[in-house]
Amino acid sequence: MADNILEVKHLKKYFKTSRGMLHAVDDINFTLERGKTLGLVGESGCGKSTTGRVILRLLEPTDGEIIFEGKDISKLSKSEMRHMRKDMQIIFQDPFSSLDPKKTVSQIIAEPIIENKIIKGKLAREERVLELMDTVGLAERYINTYPHELDGGRRQRIGIARALAMEPKLIICDEPVSALDVSIQAQILNLLKDLQKKLGLTYIFITHDLSVVNHFSDDIAVMYLGQIVEKAPAEELFDNPVHPYTQALLSAIPIPELGHQRQRVQLKGEITSPIEPPAECRFAKRCLMCNEEVCKKTVPQLIEISPNHFVACPLKQKELGFNV
């Protein structure tokens, strides 16, 4: 049996607004094998970051189970959760606002160590900070600098060192390279990959950048308005996208090569509101293939159309001979 570090079942997160309930994350299910990377992709507002935060319970889930190493953490008390978070860390998108400007690099990295009483004694702690800085490729001379003195790439390295300080098993990377220039982006992506190999880390990699997620992930889940519309191993998803939204998303990536001709999958119309969405396919209004009879009758379910390839498009499911 596969060694699953994380299992998410029927996860929901609704926000109350003046116009009704906003369904930010709406019934998400997936399992994640230890040592692997799940890429969570989608456009702004699709609920990918909310999903990451709910899994860590930085936001309280509305409903559903989050099973981490066989234990449902969605019902744990605050203090129990605090203990749990040692194993689950997050790296944020913006290295400019996620670091305390009044603390030095060593103070920032040492904070979780002190807070969780992992290492006692100042000398031992300092040694650990230096070791972590070395792991993420930060030169020792930066130990007493402040975040504003460093560039984006180095700041992101501090964020990674801080996350690693707890020796976590799972790290949620929320757009860790989106704010960085391409040459620096590649440095950070390589670092994250090396760390995964060395420390056996499991990642959930949240991004809107499809070429990055393809490079980085084992499995990819495509989200649209709070739901997973397609999930497959990275290679399969890119070679054989089935959901019309995935197809549109992939065909929209600009490729940095000469004479690259391809058919764009066009989208139309307005985006369905995530506030009290109707019980139909949420992509239907933008989908050129939409068939009112099929797509607007019920909420589509994820069905495994081939090994490990899940799709939530009733039209395609029908085409492939599944009962919808």
Binding site: S183, Q185, L210, S211, V212, N214, E235, F238, I255
Partner: peptide, 9 residues
């Protein structure tokens, strides 16, 4: 070289 290659992961 810094860009991920979409055809060769």
């Amino acid at each position: 070289n810094s860009l991920p290659n979409i055809k060769n992961r």
